[in-house]
Structures are given as C-alpha cells and as structure tokens.
Amino acid sequence: MRIMVWHVHGSWTTSFVQGGHDYLVPLTPGRGPDGRGRARTYPWPDNVYEVPYDRLAAEHVDLVVYQRPHEIELAREWLGRDVPGVYVEHNTPAGDVPKTRHPLADRADIPLVHVTHFNDLFWDSGRAPTHVIEHGVVDPGHLYTGELPRAGVVVNEPVRRWRVAGTDLLPTFAAAAPLDVFGMKVTGLPATLGLADDMAAFEDLPQREMHAELARRRVYLHPYRWTSLGLSLIEAMMLGMPVVAMATTEAVEAVPPEAGVISTKLPTLVRALKTFATDPELAAQAGKAARSAALARYDVHRFLADWERLLGEIVPDGATGT
C-alpha cells in the first residue's frame, strides 16, 4: 500500500512508518509545517519517501492519513482527486472540554482514530466512526544507568505551552532534584525560570542521542497537566527509568504503581522525585517495572497490527497500484 502522511509528530510517525508499506511524506520549499519531508532527527526506514507537494498528483496513493483538519482539503488540492483517508487525533480537546466537538464530528466518511481511550471519552466525535489505537513505541532498549542524580524532562516549546506542559512547576521540582530539559525550543529556559545553576537544556538532539542522555538521569519527570499521552513518557519507561508524573489524562493508565509515582498532589510528586534521585536502588527497581509495563502495553508490533486491521477495512484490497 502507498500511504501519504504528513510529518507532524516525529515520534508517532517513527512508529507508524515501521509498517512495511510505502510512505509518501509531502515536501514544500523551506520545509514548513505542511511539508517537512523526511525527519532529520528520527531514524526512519528507507520506505519513507519525501515527495515535493507539486509532484504528488503524479504519484499513486492508496490512502491519506490526516492529522490536522486543513489537510483534508490540502490532499484534494495536491493529489487532484479523492483518495480514501483516515484521521488521527493526537490531542486532548481544548477550551470548554465537556462541550468540545471534534472537527470531523459531522462527517461519517472518514474514520477517526484516537490515540488514547481518554481522548475517545472526552472528545465529542459526533457521527464520525471512531477507533482507538493506542501508541506503540520502537523499543530503544534498556539503556538506563541512572548514574546522574538528576531528573530528566522532555518537553517541546515549554514557554509557549507554559501551564499545559507544567513548565511553571519546574522551579518547585528543581528544589527536590536538579533538572535537565530535552526538546524543541528549550534553550534559554533555565535562565527564564531563574534556575541557571540547577537546570541544563538539551535542544533538538537526534532521538538515539537523546535516549542515551536521558537514560543517564536517575528519574523521569512528566509534569504535564493536559496532554494526550506524551510518547516521551513511554520512551522513558522503555529505557528503564522510574517515573514521576501528574495523575491526569491517560497517564493514570500508562504508569502502574510499581513503576513510579503518579498523583495530583504536588507535595507527593516533589517527595517522590527527591526519593528517586537519592535512592539509586529504588530508582532502578521501579525503572525495571516501568520498562516491563511499557513493553507489555505499548509494543510497536501490537500498534502496527492494530493499524493493519484498520487499513484493511478502509482499503480492503490493499495496494491498488504502484
């Protein structure tokens, strides 16, 4: 099958393109949001092809994976024809959450895939046929050493996503353990928070390098108040890191008690962070449990099998051309 998919979420796409199909990723001049092409910091297989947007009409495409509402019209414009599609909703609803209606709620022609059961529960999906395909992560291996008595945090754009990402809470956590922040647009964050001596920032590292560095930290901190389910949390668990996380959205399903501490009580989380940072044996034990839990629930092969079943329903005869 030949599948067109935008490079929107690098970690999710890294797992999705392991499925053995041909994946066509739009490319625009300047590699802007609608045409980033192949990832530069994620290890994508050779069956992912970046295709200039103005050449897509000449390509055979069996299926389009939408991840943002405007992509539906964009695909029709660039392909010059209608192609079966599926919409992946990565995010929790925003705004007046109990009343948040999904952009596809009035359509019954495009299957809507939620990446967590929490999202499926909280979005008003209307008439859209819905499915839940939980995340799958390519196993980075048990890389944990925990040699540094510091906490690792992964967050993209922490200033823009201030309260959503829990950036405002980092000074409180830094009082319990020094923090290292990884992600996009994190440079300057320590000074912004007044924590230049207690925090280091690592920006845009290749995924393999980030995993290796993260695994040197004693504990993983997930301070997000409102996010679908950060793939960085699952990746940290697979690395073998103990977890301290907000008991919000899907995290309560992802992190069992033996894998770390989840709570809505900030003092409880601060104490847990300090305990893991100062007790390497306890941290390693919880990290092993975290890895086992993540492998059991978020294995990439289960993820791909779930997707293969759904793709078979949308395009029953599979690839229809080359």
Results as ranks from 00 to 15, higher is better:
G188M: 03
V244Y: 12
P223C: 00
W226M: 09
L231W: 03
L239S: 02
M199S: 00
W226E: 08
T192N: 08
P257N: 07
Y224C: 14
M199N: 04
S228T: 08
L239V: 13
A215D: 07
M241H: 02
H222A: 14
T187C: 04
L239C: 14
M241V: 00
L214P: 11
M246I: 04
V243Y: 05
T248F: 08
E203L: 08
M210Y: 04
M184K: 12
A251V: 15
G230H: 10
E235P: 08
Y220S: 13
T187R: 13
V244I: 01
V255R: 06
Y224H: 14
A212T: 05
E258L: 06
M199P: 12
R208H: 07
P257C: 07
A236V: 04
G230I: 02
A247L: 03
A236C: 13
P257M: 08
E213G: 06
A245M: 14
G194T: 06
V243D: 00
R225V: 05
D197H: 08
E203S: 03
L229C: 09
A200G: 13
E250Q: 12
E203F: 00
A200E: 15
R216A: 15
P257S: 02
H211S: 11
G194P: 02
Y224F: 14
F202W: 14
A196F: 01
V252T: 15
D198C: 10
F202Q: 08
E258Y: 01
H211R: 05
H222S: 14
E213S: 13
D198R: 13
D204S: 11
V243Q: 13
M210S: 12
L233I: 05
M210K: 12
E203G: 00
E235V: 09
G194H: 07
M210N: 06
R218A: 07
A201R: 10
V255I: 11
V243H: 11
L231D: 01
L233A: 07
D197L: 09
A191T: 12
D198Q: 14
L195H: 07
D197A: 12
L195G: 06
Y224Q: 13
P256F: 00
D198F: 02
G188L: 06
M199F: 04
L214F: 04
L193H: 04
